[in-house]
Design a protein around this nucleic acid. Structure first.
Lengths: 203, 203
DNA sequence: TATATCATGTAATCGGTTACATGATTAA
DNA sequence: TTAATCATGTAACCGATTACATGATATA
């Protein structure tokens, strides 16, 4: 039993590179922050590691662009082997989702907390997720378009080529919105229960 | 900056031990599988690791129960220090949730997949999550009761002491159900889109 | 003056998973 | 006869996170 040569994060980087076109690790990190961060966040260290790994596997090629005052830009591009690997990954069944939410854990063992502490955590979570929901709703109107290269400072735009974005990104965006709505609704219910002892309605 | 001496998984084990009363690592694993698995799943190796760590920290005590044909049962109990650590953890703000779902990733980069492969993954996910939803709905009627010791073979029951279970477990159970419903609904929508090219209604 | 941007990496650590290891009893 | 249950662990690996490291330019 050999260990797999790549993992979800590998394919996330590969997929983004294939989707948006050649770019540097630094650019990839920006895309992750603005497009994938809620679904599959990562750090620049990991991106550089994955790029090196994929370069060794022959899944991406690298072209060095020399700069004087800054480190050289290393522009990565997906090779034919990389495209094949991406397609092969798409045929494998995904591993199942594991939610690991520390807030849920704290509420589960709420017997060992003060109601004030719990309420405070929940209020912070509401503020955070309301913000997230807002961002996702705005993002729906600015879907990335395939193969449009990055302009400096711009993350993605829908100003080019038919203006339609990508249907799959839209689907995932819809999931993100639906999830945040459900989560927020539950947070409010839970807060009401903790503050007023109000029993939630039976589902 | 010292690293923290414990992590969510540590407190999950500690909380369960405090909630249900003294038991072995083996018992804890059973509880995880039946009560926490969707929220914070783990393996027996990790539970044994956490128990040893907490024992060194003085958060749990251990009593050995000798057996002849099997390894001795090591029964762990939460100490006063452990209770204090649990309370202190409850006062710290939780880290924010990170969803990492490989299926979402595959759909996001669905341009590089065949519709057949995507549809197949989604159908499998629907089957899985429908099953989960069913289990959560059944579990709502069999909430664990604090401090009731385990009978062999039985995971938990609500047959004792007022029959009311624990309100916090009920809240988390409600979240699990709400999440599964939202996820399943989105899966059906996404499947319809992929199979028929049918556009999802705007939210 | 201080922070953010651009642009690359390395080092260290730890949680989480998988595989390895043992061995008797009981139920299908 | 085969699998599940009971009951404990160790070993190895890797993804993910945090911290360390450099250094110029442009903006607030």
């Amino acid at each position: 039993m050999d260990r797999p040569e790549a993992y979800p994060i590998t394919y996330a980087v590969l997929g983004l590179l294939a989707f948006m076109g050649p770019m540097t690790g630094y650019d990839l990190k920006r895309f992750f922050d603005h497009m994938l961060s809620p679904m599959w966040n990562t750090t620049h260290s990991q991106i550089y590691k994955e790029l090196r790994r994929m370069n060794e596997l022959g899944w991406v090629s690298m072209e060095r662009e020399e700069q004087e005052t800054r480190p050289d830009r290393k522009i990565y591009a997906v090779t034919a082997e990389g495209q094949a690997a991406l397609g092969s990954w798409q045929n494998q069944p995904p591993t199942i989702l594991q939610i690991r939410d520390e807030l849920l854990l704290k509420i589960m063992f709420g017997t060992f907390a003060t109601p004030e502490a719990l309420a405070s955590h929940i209020r912070a979570a509401i503020a955070y997720h309301e913000q997230r929901l807002l961002e996702y709703r705005q993002n729906l109107h600015y879907m990335p378009t395939r193969g449009i290269p990055l302009k400096r400072g711009a993350y993605y735009s829908n100003e080019a080529l038919g203006n339609e974005g990508d249907a799959y990104f839209g689907l995932v965006g819809r999931f993100a919105i639906a999830f945040e709505k459900t989560y927020i609704e539950w947070l409010y219910e839970t807060l009401a229960f903790i503050e007023n002892g109000q029993a939630p309605p039976s589902s």
